[in-house]
Design a protein around this nucleic acid. Structure first.
Lengths: 123, 123
DNA sequence: CCGTATCCTACGGGATACTG
DNA sequence: CAGTATCCCGTAGGATACGG
């Protein structure tokens, strides 16, 4: 019976499956690593200060946060504004482009919560 | 004005923000790397044979596919069935648990397509 | 066809210390 | 507070070859 299914699959497979796989891989490339999505999430949630962002993301070091923020600024995901206070203060803010990751982040948060319920036994 | 916003943020921040960040990080941990989601996507789309799965995912090597499949079988994301054909054939199938990643994958495919349009200039 | 076995390396990422 | 600079390391992942 697996042979029949095999035949069916060949017929039903074509579509623009290839395009979708490519889109998926592109996205993975862009948001790859442990930190980009948590940082985006944090900033989109209103955290603006370096320290606040860091405290909002368990485990991240200043080094990684600094690196990622720099890269995200280059990629127009966030803006960086320096205020000449004493001491100087800096604010990061998300661009509209950054917010397009919202659905992905929400889907992942949702999955994570359900997954935890499954592990814990219940919510 | 950034000082006022700072004050507001502190007040509005609490919620179960922490829980959401944790859920997000958990999910990233589970589906981390370049290959897990593309493989899940491929199998959920009906690909069952090792070769078919490999051909459906640009760039993946037999080594990585083999490793990931083994791990995914351990984690009950897929089932592996061996048929004593000549030569022997193997079929991979997704479990219900595996399908819970659907929303994440769809959101990422969607983002990838839109991102390409933005890059290309239009769709 | 369905993988395993080697070999190798780039780099994501941690720890720690230090500056403006 | 807002980072940068070093040092270091594990491992994800690529290339290639081979076995059942």
């Amino acid at each position: 019976m697996h042979l029949e299914k095999q035949a069916k699959k060949i017929l039903s497979f074509p579509r623009n499956q290839a395009e979708e796989v490519q889109a998926l891989q592109d996205t993975i490339y862009v948001i790859g690593g442990k930190w980009k999505l948590p940082i985006i999430n944090s900033i989109c949630n209103g955290n603006k200060r370096f320290r606040d962002i860091q405290r909002s993301i368990p485990g991240i070091t200043t080094r990684m946060l600094s690196r990622e923020l720099k890269e995200m600024e280059l990629n127009k995901l966030i803006t960086r504004t320096v205020y000449a206070d004493i001491p100087v203060s800096v604010e990061y803010e998300s661009t509209d482009y950054c917010k397009t990751f919202g659905p992905i982040i929400l889907a992942m948060i949702d999955w994570g919560k359900k997954h935890k319920k499954k592990i814990t036994g219940k919510g």
